[in-house]
């Protein structure tokens, strides 16, 4: 089943500003990363997927439903976690999430039960009875996630879920998102600026730039190994570089790393031999991988 499909989706505001231009993309269920520069059209895409705004032209379907034609049907099966704080400070998390559950059509008792379950899943226990106004950023993010989960959706749209979190908070949030995607079997679309984060938790990635599709692919396809070996020694980098050059290996330097093209398996032996001969501490020997960040770095070059 296709989770989200768009066909030449275009959105212009006031006929002048183009937010999305002829975007065609289809993704399968899983954890999907949505990346792009500020102003690339990510928020517009999310609003269209939720049926909050209509596209200027083109088709879109979410879980097989057209959000332009039947926005209520889409929203009953999709949970949304907005980027900005939008929580009333004087309500407790339990009250708020129960209320939002009832807004999604759950009966009073079911809403209360589901709210308590959703809050437990995101890791809010006794705190849930305190007013939200006194919560830390991390706790507020959890409340926003809980309200997106309360009606047991099939798809979650998360807009910058780790914004403003400290390293421990980020780790916990990423683990939670990964768990929702794998254990609960709910598909997740994560908007993020942090490509490292996306590499860590997503299976699929959609990159958009200036309203156009830059690339949509599996993460594994974007992080394939290259034909370059990265070698790092914790001391004597210069000596090793000189020795490898003597062995007729074309060596390039990249910060602390020495990069050697991988001709065949013999290259491994040559490097290991050189390191052992010079008695250097070998810190890293690894085939370099492509990184998602290259998508943006190469674009930078073409712009310059």
């Amino acid at each position: 089943m296709t989770l989200i499909a768009t066909q030449s989706l275009t959105k212009t505001y006031g006929g002048r500003v183009t937010a999305l231009a002829d975007l065609t993309v289809a993704v399968e269920p899983g954890i999907i990363g949505l990346v792009g520069a500020n102003g690339a059209g990510k928020s517009t895409l999310i609003k269209i997927l939720l049926g909050l705004i209509a596209p200027t032209s083109g088709q879109v379907s979410v879980l097989g439903i057209d959000p332009t034609a039947d926005p209520a049907a889409v929203r009953s099966r999709v949970g949304y976690m907005p980027e900005h704080d939008c929580l009333p400070p004087d309500l407790s998390a339990a009250e708020l999430v129960t209320h939002l559950g009832r807004m999604s059509g759950l009966p009073r008792t079911a809403a209360r039960e589901r709210a308590s379950e959703a809050l437990r899943h995101v890791g809010l226990y006794e705190e849930r009875y305190r007013p939200v106004g006194g919560y830390s950023t991390g706790m507020k993010q959890r409340v926003k996630l809980a309200q997106a989960l309360v009606h047991d959706p099939d798809l979650l749209l998360l807009d910058e879920p780790t914004n403003g979190l400290d390293p421990a908070g980020r780790d916990a949030m990423l683990a939670l998102v990964h768990r929702i995607g794998t254990e609960f079997g709910i598909s997740v679309l994560v908007c993020s600026h942090l490509l490292g984060e996306v590499e860590r938790i997503c299976d699929t990635l959609i990159a958009i730039d200036g309203g156009r599709l830059l690339r949509a692919d599996n993460i594994s396809a974007m992080t394939t190994a290259t034909d370059v070996l990265a070698v790092e020694v914790s001391e004597g980098t210069e000596e090793l570089a000189a020795r490898l050059a003597e062995l007729k290996l074309p060596v390039a330097r990249d910060g602390r790393l020495l990069l050697v093209p991988l001709a065949d398996d013999g290259t491994y032996d040559l490097i290991l031999g050189a390191v052992a001969e010079l008695d250097l501490p070998l810190h890293r020997l690894d085939q370099r991988r492509h990184r998602v960040a290259e998508l943006f770095a190469t674009r930078e070059l073409t712009h310059a």
Binding site: D265, Y268, D269, D279, P281, L282, H283, R284, L285, D286
Partner: peptide, 20 residues
Amino acid sequence: TRALPRIALNKGIRVRQLVP
């Protein structure tokens, strides 16, 4: 980190990856 390259060479084992 000094011993690993030596040991691998002595045993004739090819190390394809070492990542901290």
